[in-house]
């Protein structure tokens, strides 16, 4: 058993768990943040993607203990003051989700992708970057559209701010 302390969505949190506890289970069970999902056992589906110290990671393939001391952002941490984050808003506007199960991981992956590529994203890059996120409902068509739209919008906002 270990006492784990980390920052999650801007708040410092602690919990006691087995050393073998995965980060995703710590987030879901110790913290009650059930937006992060588990969809496979082999780290391929991406339903569990969160950000650790600003980068997308698969929380099903990291021990909670490994993440101790880090800063984690989950899907619950994106919307501010009741306003959807632009990536979330784009998924809604472009019908980039159906059953919603892969959605948190998709959104977190999309956000990381946009962070790295900015508004230069093109369709081929988005599709390649989604290798680690499986969706069974949408055929990806509208997810790709949503990410491109969000990248454009966020790029535009960034440019306007500069």
């Amino acid at each position: 058993m270990a006492k784990i302390t980390m920052t999650v969505n801007g708040r410092q949190v602690s919990g006691v768990c087995d050393d073998r506890t995965l980060l995703v289970h710590f987030i879901r069970e110790n913290l009650g943040l059930t937006g992060t999902h588990v969809g496979c056992d082999t780290s391929q589906c991406g339903a569990c993607v969160v950000h650790m110290d600003g980068q997308s990671v698969k929380s099903c393939s990291i021990l909670a203990a490994q993440a101790a001391g880090s800063s984690i952002t989950t899907i619950e941490g994106l919307a501010q003051n009741g306003e959807l984050h632009p990536v979330q808003a784009a998924f809604k506007a472009h019908h980039g989700l159906q059953c919603g199960f892969c959605t948190p991981g998709m959104v977190m992956t999309a956000l990381d992708m946009i962070r790295r590529h900015g508004s230069d994203l093109d369709e081929a890059t988005v599709r390649a970057e989604l290798e680690g996120n499986i969706c069974r409902c949408t055929g990806y068509h509208n997810i790709v559209k949503a990410i491109l739209a969000a990248a454009h919008e966020m790029g535009g906002v960034r440019q306007a701010a500069e």
């Binding site: 997308s56 698969k58 790295r116």
Partner: peptide, 9 residues
Amino acid sequence: IGDPAVRHM
């Protein structure tokens, strides 16, 4: 190698 999230770790 792998996907972006895997490459980060």
